[in-house]
Design a binder for these strands. Sequence first.
DNA 1: CCGGATGTTCACCT
DNA 2: GAGGTGAACATCCG
Length: 260
Amino acid sequence: MPEILEVETYRRTAARALAREVVSVQADDAWFLKGGTQREELAVSLVGRRFGAARRRGKLLLLDVEAEAVLGLRFGMTGRLLVDGAAGIERLEYSSDRDDPAWDRFGVTFADGGTMVLRDPRRLGGVELDPDVERLGPDAWSIGLAGLRDVLGASTAPLKARLMDQGRLAGMGNLLTDETLWRAALSPEREAGSLDTTELRRLHRTLRRVLDDLAQRGGSHTGDLQASRRPGAGCPRDGAPLARSTVGGRTTYWCPAHQR
DNA sequence: CCGGATGTTCACCT
DNA sequence: GAGGTGAACATCCG
């Protein structure tokens, strides 16, 4: 997925779907319906109504349905949102160059003939009616210094794992987290609770800067570390050989020379 | 042919 | 309880 930056783009795409009457719902893929959501339930909740607002918490896109319900959309690694056939993001890293309508896992049709479709080749995303937003931590883009301190707490888990724990901090994916830790000169393997005040401030400042910076550049894959995410590459900052390991269950590239 | 890849969830360990 | 691992989802790429 789309990490937080891409989902924010989808949120703006979804804004084009607001205030248009829904006349039908396409939700035939039962696997794609999460949290016990039923197809009939979706139809009842959406048909005849309009989306009133497009919100986001971390990587979860939330569409308010006339104060009646909330439609939650998740995009997994390869999901895209298309409104009237156009996507906010034409091509996703690690997804497909093809673009097959057979990958449409969920959609609605509007009275004006337009559509909003969630197209996801790998079916890693999902749709849920009234998702429990409180299961997510605070949004990474707006978290404050004190909030970030709470996220790390006294945890002995690796720093990277904690930052990617959506229940503690919502929005950080694998690429953004590696980029942030690389820029902040912090090892992904550090115990999350071991940062001193200076390091915590540096992490907070860097996190904010990475999100703003990469949003402007065009996405989670536009970081300074990105081109070096391959075996044998050197650190773009100091040329030292990058380490590749698994942290928090995800492939991690980092520079042992300057990330401590 | 095989192994991974912007993710989440769950079962099963320690 | 806290962490860690591996599987599942499906497709493409090197």
